[in-house]
Structure formats: C-alpha cells, structure tokens
Design a protein around this nucleic acid. Sequence first.
RNA 1: GGACGGGUAGCUCAGGUGGUAGAGCAUCGGACUUUUAAUCCGGUGGCCGCGGGUUCGAGUCCCGCCCCGUUCACCA
Length: 500
Amino acid sequence: MGEQNHHSTEQDLIQNRIDKMARIRGRGDEPFKYTFGRSCSIDGARAAFEQAEAQTDDPGQIDVRATLAGRMIAFRGHGKSSFADIRDASGSIQVYFNKKGLGQDAYDALHDLDIGDFIGVSGKIKRTRMGEITVFADSCTVLAKSLRALPEKYHGLTDIETRYRQRYLDLVANPEVLDTFRKRVAMIGAIRGWLTDRGFLEVETPMLQPIPGGAAARPFVTHHNAYDCSLYLRVAPELYLKRLIVGGFEKVFELNRNFRNEGVDAKHNPEFTMLELYEAYQDYLGLMDETEELLLHVIRTCVGGTVFSYQGDTIDAAPPWKRMTLFGAIREFAGIDLEQINDRNEAAKLAQEAGVEVEPAMGYGKIVDEVMAEKVQPNLVQPTFLYDYPVELSPLAKQKRGNPALTERYQVFIGRLELCNAFSELNDPIDQRERFMAQMKLREQGDEEAQRLDEDYLHALEVGMPPTAGLGIGIDRLAMLLTDSASIREVVLFPLLRTV
RNA sequence: GGACGGGUAGCUCAGGUGGUAGAGCAUCGGACUUUUAAUCCGGUGGCCGCGGGUUCGAGUCCCGCCCCGUUCACCA
C-alpha cells in the first residue's frame, strides 16, 4: 500500500522494492531470514501428491501437506485471491492464496512481495479446476527479498553478452542453461567413476610451472614475489604426470584446468578443462580400446544410449568406432597421398593441388596437419580414430614400430570436434632430448609455440619410465558434444570476456 | 588483426528517403476469489554503446573508439 510512486527507472524499481522491505520490517517481520524448515523439495511434494492420488478414487480424501521454499517466478493477482509460481532446484509448483486460507493481514502482506523474492509457503496440496497441482497456502513468509527485476518471463534473457557476464541471471531466466551445466557435472562424474573403478588415481600437479611444457601453446606468465621468479600457468600437466609414472604410479589421471594464452573463439576458451591419464605397460592400441570404452560409458550415462544429435547431425556411437590412419584419411578425403612424401616442397605442392593453402613457413608436419584440419576433420561426424601421426607433430610421442617417420599417436573426432589426443609415450631419454632440440630450433626460428627443453623431465626419463600410454580429453568439447552446444561458452559457467 | 552483423526503457524488440522516440512484458494505481504469457482500465519510465563532425534539426548521415556475435587469420 503506502505512497504513490509513478516512476520506473531502474533506480526507481529498486527503491520501490526497498520501500517494500521497510514495510515488511515495519510489521516486525524480517525480509532476510536465517533459515527455513522445508518439509521436502518441490518435486518431492509433487510426487507425494501424485502417489496419494493414485491410491484413491476420491480426490477429497487426499490429505497431503507440504512446506516448501523457492524463488517466486510469477504472480497472478485476482483481487481477493492470487496465484504464484515458485521454483526450487528440483522444479516449480503453483501456489494459491486467498483471504480464507491466509487471513486478511497475511493476504494483504502479499503486496510487499515481488517476482524474484524467495518465499516459504505451507499448505495442503490439491488440484485446481484446471488440473494444476497447487499448494493452497495457509501461511506465506518472505525468506529473501529481491531488489532487482528478473528478465522477462516469456522471452527470458537472450542477450548473449549479458548471459555470459551475469550468468546468475542466465541461470534464473533460462532453466535449460541449468540443465546444460547439470549435464556437464554428470559427465565429469561419469568419467571419474569409470577411472576410479579401474584403479586410476587422481592426482594434482602444479598449475604454476617454471617451464611450461606438454603442449605446443603460448603460456600466461606471472611472477612469484617471494622467490622473485617468473612462473607460467600450465598449458598441460603432461610432463608432471609422466614424472609420477617414473616414480612408480601406474595409473594416474588429472582432471583440471589448463591455460593457453591464445585467441578466443567458439571452440577455445583461454582456460579450459582437460582430462589427462597415463597408464604404465600400455601402448596406444590398448589405450584406443579403453578410450572407446570410456567415451561410450560417458555417452550412455549422459544421453541414455548411443544415438544423439549434434548441431543437426545424427551421431551413432555404437561400437566399434571407425579407425583410419591419418594418411589413409587424407587419401580418402583430400584425394592426395602424402604418406610416401618426405620432401616438404613436394608435400606443399600436393596440398595446394588439393585446395589447401600453404604458407612458406609451414614445414612438412604442419602441412600434413593443415590438410587434415581442412579436408579430413570436416568429414568426421561419426566417432572416428585417426592414428599414426608424423613425428614432427608429436615431440612427446614414441616412434611407430617399424616406421620412424611416424609416431604411435591417435586422435578421436566426433561431430567434427577434436576430442582426444593420445600416444605411446616417448620414454627413451636420448630420443626425447633430440626431439626437444628440434623444438628448440623451431623456437629459435620464431615458433613461439614450439616446446621448451625441460632438463629435469629428461632427468626423470633417464631414471627410467616404463612403457606407458597417455590420453588427453578436452572436457569442454565433450560437454559441447553431449549438450548439443555450438560454442564452448555455453558449457563454461563464466567464459572469459573482455573486462569493460 | 581483417570482413560482416549487432548495441534503442529493467527484459524482449519496432523505429522507409534526417523532422517532438514506440510496443509487449515488468513496474505503479484501479477492478476482479481457480489463474497459469490471467484479463480489463489508467499512469510512470529513455545519455537511442561512447566521443567528435555535417545540418536549422541526427536514433537515422560521416569519422574515430568501446563491447558482443559470426567468420577468416592464428591456435590443441
């Protein structure tokens, strides 16, 4: 009730709600309660009512009461009676208020509620004439006042920038966003469960590293004051995890954040989540089987089967998945054979004939990689393993048995997304030192992403690492795939945006 | 970094050729005891992304800048 307020700028909308808070306090009530005893969740109440309904033919006999809490997301006033919808994490339910149930004073106090407020209600659950399961409230209390208007009920919040910058609004206004992130949580849980069941131990290795290694990427640099030294945010945990294999761990994994100081687009966020696992006495062929098993387990858990759609494509992940050599795939999709070519210029010529642009700075390995990305990857909708990559592209992978130009490495693609990278780990310290030297040379030639020589890592290999296979899975991309999201920003709660 | 698209009320969006900024929802007041995008009547609400310029007059035209998106470049 109270004074007239004819304004409605944003500040006025807020002031209006502050005034309502004051009126609530004026009645001796507290607009920000400390606790509230719910009898159950909203979905729980709904289920209890439906169960009671199923056990009787006479609706009048049903006597289910509930005390529920949630955010009021809609309010429809009708004078002497009113309807509200409240929502908690489990779901939403309609609440009916009238003077008879609440009493005059409590009914009048509804005027000081706003959409967005958290409220607690209790009452008997019944169906309305329209069949809607409804709490007929005999009490209602404000639990936390909301001072700002929620986005519009019908269109929701669609402005992408606001959705990412103020994710809390996105989550409130767009329930399907909450679902997406719940799926991500379930996916990660499925991965951890599968690995733990098979004896993999989850470990944590440094995020702050003196030498950023394990991937070809530019790092973020920071400074440690007490030691007065530069440190880098890790681009990968790989070299530390393999040190653990040297030390005697046989099955380890780490599922955590990596940081790469690179551009942002629909498939890249500067911080992203990666699973890396290492298994001693295993090679890439055995790990391929395990990768398929793990991903199948995750897909079945998250989509309830093997068939799902991604960005308009129907994907059937029923095993066995297609396996092609990288060069075989290039033959099939680009129509050129780069396998027997070891001359950089000849490879460049063939690539250009296939319609792939080649820069003068690109070496043989880079050309192969480019042909793969341009001509092969766009065809890899169904789950596909590509294996046996050129040694130039894979400085941490073991040479292929019988062909030193290749490494025992594979990648997994689904829905045109590159999801996994794995190989038989290079454990020959002499070979590894030569690979590092080749990388150093690239670095001197201006390749900022070439890997750096890590003397302690070589020392570890010299101590001796058992035969080992390692796998990396891009968790964000897997989440994109399983939630049918076109952009990585849809599966990262707070994606990086420019600070304004 | 380049190209293209976008930025107008709290939210969702309209605003030919330059001429007093609009709608729906939300909000405020009124009516209404079974609505569910409730309905009906009446009202409030604007740095039109920011800064220059052209013009009698700019949301609209020109220049610069900021932010977002798509794409290319770059990139596991």
